[in-house]
Computed example of a mutant assay.
Amino acid sequence: MTGRDGGAAIGPTTENSPVIILVRPQLAENIGTTARAMANGGLFHLRLVAPRDGWPQERAWYASSGAHRILDAATIYETVDEAVADLHRVFATCPRPRHIIKTVMTPRNAAADMRLTEARHLRTGILFGPERAGLDNEDMARADTLIRYPLNPDFMSLNLAQAVLIMAYEWWMAADNTAPHVLMTNETQVASKGAIENFFGNLTRRLDETGFWRNVQKRPGMIRNLRHYFQRGEITEQELRTLHGVVTELSRTAEQSVAAKAAQGNAHEGQPDA
């Protein structure tokens, strides 16, 4: 099929990563976008239970945005029992509890539980129901745990790929160590406190020279405010160099202006009286 050509070089990120199981999926495009969502979160194993229009379907590859290998490796089952037979833990997404006595987790807690299960070299699977109605009671009876998404109670509608993406994201984040906050400095780096103090000394000296502190009594407080400003964030060395240049240029311009006024005044004084 033309839709299978190319695709990203993706594969299983871990040996026992969760299996995504689509139960009676209806549209090929939704299977394709599910593969795309899986790839975003490092999931690879896809199982299809009785897809309505059969399998394979070329439209799925077109919709996967390059996640072709997930679709190439997808396996087909006639029943949910067959699809989960080799798994050790099974989760099922459940938008609306239906009088079932079973543990219910958020996607985040479920993902953490799956990571612990994976560390024990056991395999997990997540059941997702048909697009129109979701899993029925018989499907959920095959699961150990239900997953319910804590969304806006007035509008909890998700399409299939969105539901899978939330779980894929939480799975990925459960083992991710990305810093929650980082300053992108590109080719420069964060300036040291000494470099900042050097700049601040230059700034203060220039302000003294230009007579900025017209109210001498307020000078200490104004200096503290300026110091707080420059110490508040992570100023880079490049930014300090720019600020040094700004201060130097402003001082030079001010000196030239004073000199020009003085010269003009001297010229007037040298003119003979009318």
Rank of each mutant, 00 (worst) to 15 (best):
M114R: 07
F128W: 01
E131R: 06
A110W: 08
T124Q: 01
T117A: 06
G134M: 02
G125N: 08
L116T: 13
G129Q: 09
M114W: 03
T117Y: 00
G134E: 02
A143Y: 04
R123H: 11
R123G: 12
F128C: 07
A119R: 15
I126M: 04
D139G: 08
A141P: 07
H121P: 02
A133K: 03
R132I: 07
T117K: 01
A111I: 03
P130W: 01
R132A: 15
E138Y: 11
E131H: 06
D139P: 03
D136N: 15
E131C: 12
D139Q: 04
R120T: 10
L127T: 06
R142N: 14
A112P: 00
N109F: 06
A112Q: 06
P130C: 08
D136F: 13
R123D: 04
F128Y: 11
P130Y: 02
A143H: 08
D136A: 06
R115K: 09
E118C: 10
R132D: 12
D113Q: 12
A141G: 08
D139K: 11
R132S: 15
R142I: 01
A143L: 01
M114S: 07
R120H: 12
R115L: 06
R115H: 14
R132V: 10
D139C: 04
G134W: 04
E138N: 09
A119V: 00
A141K: 13
N137D: 11
L135I: 02
P130L: 00
P130A: 13
N137H: 11
L122V: 11
L135K: 11
R142L: 00
H121L: 00
N109W: 00
G134H: 05
M114N: 04
D139E: 04
L127R: 02
L135D: 07
A119L: 06
M114E: 02
M140A: 12
R120M: 03
A143F: 05
D136G: 14
A143W: 03
E138A: 15
A119N: 14
R142G: 04
E118H: 08
R142V: 02
